[in-house]
């Protein structure tokens, strides 16, 4: 980016996210990436995904962080990197007020991400939806089944290379 962008003073939200990231980085070090200081939704990536649940618990319970609220958990397909991922939007609702997004990635085939359904209840159904649409597994999830598609549906519809099945129980599916 050019110099002009750097001269713009950072918003309070980015500064707050920076402070949050520093607390997490102090504790977990290499397990988290640098903070992406974009003005829309600052985020960092969890590089050691087996630590994701510990990080989540730390973010929820640490008195400096107190991320009490998971606003959303979305799935993402990265076909060029041969990866799948999730994006979690977290907020300290009614306490400290700051927001941050966390990304976790896993392999495209047979990828496993630790479940945070026990940390934030919201994650339960959101992880089921991500599993339904993208096919990554969430280890330690209490009830990992498809949530929207029928249970015997073939494939994961939101993957970029998804091909719809010809028939479902003898009914023609495509146009």
């Amino acid at each position: 980016m050019g110099d002009t962008q750097e001269n713009i003073p950072q918003s309070g939200e980015v500064i707050a996210a920076k402070a949050v990231w520093q607390v997490i980085n102090e504790k977990f070090g290499d397990a988290v990436s640098e903070l992406d200081e974009n003005p829309f939704m600052p985020f960092f990536e969890v590089l050691k995904r087996e630590q994701w649940r510990d990080i989540a618990l730390f973010m929820r319970d640490n008195p400096k962080l107190r991320f009490t609220y998971m606003a959303c958990l979305s799935g993402v397909d990265y076909p060029e990197e041969r990866k799948l991922g999730i994006v979690c939007n977290l907020e300290s609702l009614g306490e400290l007020g700051h927001r941050i997004a966390v990304k976790v990635k896993c392999d495209r085939e047979g990828g496993i991400i630790p479940s945070v359904a026990k940390v934030w209840k919201t994650a339960d159904w959101h992880e089921r939806e991500a599993y339904d649409m993208y096919g990554m597994e969430f280890s330690g999830h209490p009830d990992l089944r498809r949530i929207l598609c029928p249970e015997d549906w073939e494939g994961y519809p939101l993957r970029k290379d998804y091909q719809v099945q010809e028939t479902y129980h003898g009914i023609k599916v495509p146009e």
């Binding site: 598609c149 519809p157 719809v164 009914i171 023609k172 495509p174 146009e175």
Partner: peptide, 19 residues
Amino acid sequence: CGGPYWKHGYHVLKGVDRI
């Protein structure tokens, strides 16, 4: 006929007269 889901709605039946 499936309406707005005609082309990309993988989960929609393209017209109830199919069943």
